[in-house]
């Protein structure tokens, strides 16, 4: 169901905006934004593009903050396939929410006169979750810039946070994850034990017949990762995933020269269980990718704001390349 959320002054005492902006035209997409600003941005996007964008309630975080996603959909009587994109599952990876906002901005500013985007919008709906781990994101702004996990308490309140990208029901906590809450990869108390994970998983389950592409945006490392992380076995469409991913990496490189590697997480990065990417593929979403954005280790999670624009520009090229292939496979015949 659809909800409208109007942020109230003082609602988040610890999360006031650093800068004042009144209209979308003044919004800086080359800056990092607090959660309050992102809430306001989502609301304004929905108000500005009433014919294309609706804001929907997804669930509540552990600390009782509402999670919203944006649905970008061009009115049409044709049946359409859908794309899911989430950002900010790991709190400290600030470039990810910046990219989700950039992506929405680019789509909405260009779909009317850019034939490529127009074609995609004619046949595909987009679900965009700009910040998945809202509690953690706010904590990374207020207290610990390098916080990664959610903020749920464990061990009688002596230990906080689950790694939401180890909490999905995909060979949960079998490899590359920890059952110790002190660890960065704490997988939670059970598969889907965290409210944020449950909210995302419930929605994707309900929409899985229509969703053909799942994209989750992370940093850093310059990777386009495909399933799996929990096994060295390959998904049935592995060759296709590699081909589409490599084409995306080529498009990305053509923009600013950044070299991304493409492969399964277990092959080119490390093994990990319980990731959303692996879970999405296991429930039948054919194209499932993790982007590890631009930095090569120079800045790590603390990517300077001067890097936001080139990062988003090149990532946009890669995402559009994947969407072109999704369109060709699922929409062209219609």
């Amino acid at each position: 169901y659809e909800m409208r959320f109007v942020p109230q002054d003082g609602q988040e005492d610890v999360d006031k905006p650093l800068s004042s902006w009144r209209t979308l035209e003044n919004y800086s997409y080359d800056k990092y934004h607090s959660m309050t600003e992102i809430y306001q941005w989502m609301y304004q996007i929905g108000e500005r593009y009433t014919d294309m964008v609706t804001q929907h309630f997804l669930g509540m975080t552990y600390e009782s903050r509402p999670m919203y996603y944006l649905k970008i959909s061009q009115p049409s009587s044709n049946p359409k396939k859908s794309i899911w994109m989430d950002c900010g599952i790991h709190a400290r990876e600030w470039i990810a929410p910046a990219f989700c906002q950039w992506f929405v901005k680019e789509i909405l500013q260009n779909y009317q006169h850019d034939s490529r985007m127009s074609r995609l919008l004619n046949s595909l709906d987009f679900y965009v979750l700009p910040v998945l781990n809202i509690d953690g994101y706010i904590y990374s702004w207020t207290t610990d810039r390098l916080w990664r996990k959610s903020r749920s308490p464990h061990d009688n309140g002596t230990c906080f946070g689950s790694d939401l990208n180890r909490n999905f029901n995909a060979s949960w906590c079998s490899i590359g994850a920890s059952k110790n809450c002190q660890d960065l990869t704490f997988c939670g108390t059970g598969p889907m034990s965290e409210p944020e994970t449950k909210a995302v998983a419930s929605f994707l389950e309900s929409q899985k017949e229509n969703i053909v592409c799942f994209l989750t945006i992370h940093s850093y490392g310059q990777y386009i990762l495909l399933p799996y992380g929990y096994t060295s076995n390959k998904p049935s469409n592995y060759e296709e995933l590699i081909q589409v991913g490599q084409k995306a990496a080529n498009a990305l490189k053509a923009k600013h020269g950044t070299n991304y590697r493409v492969g399964s997480s277990a092959d080119i990065l490390y093994s990990s269980s319980g990731s959303s990417r692996d879970w999405a593929r296991d429930i039948g979403i054919p194209f499932s990718y993790t982007f590890e954005l631009r930095d090569n280790g120079t800045y790590g999670f603390v990517l300077p704001e001067t890097q936001i624009q080139p990062t988003c520009e090149e990532t946009m090229e890669a995402v559009l390349s994947i969407l072109d292939d999704v369109y060709t496979k699922y929409c062209l015949s219609n």
Binding site: R145, L146, G297, V302
Partner: peptide
């Protein structure tokens, strides 16, 4: 400011070799 970023962990992070947990 309530939103002031905590700088100490940033400095500590820079001492950790790549790759970290992504």
């Amino acid at each position: 400011s309530a939103e002031k970023v905590a700088f100490l962990p940033v400095l500590l992070f820079l001492l950790v070799p790549f790759p970290a947990l992504l």
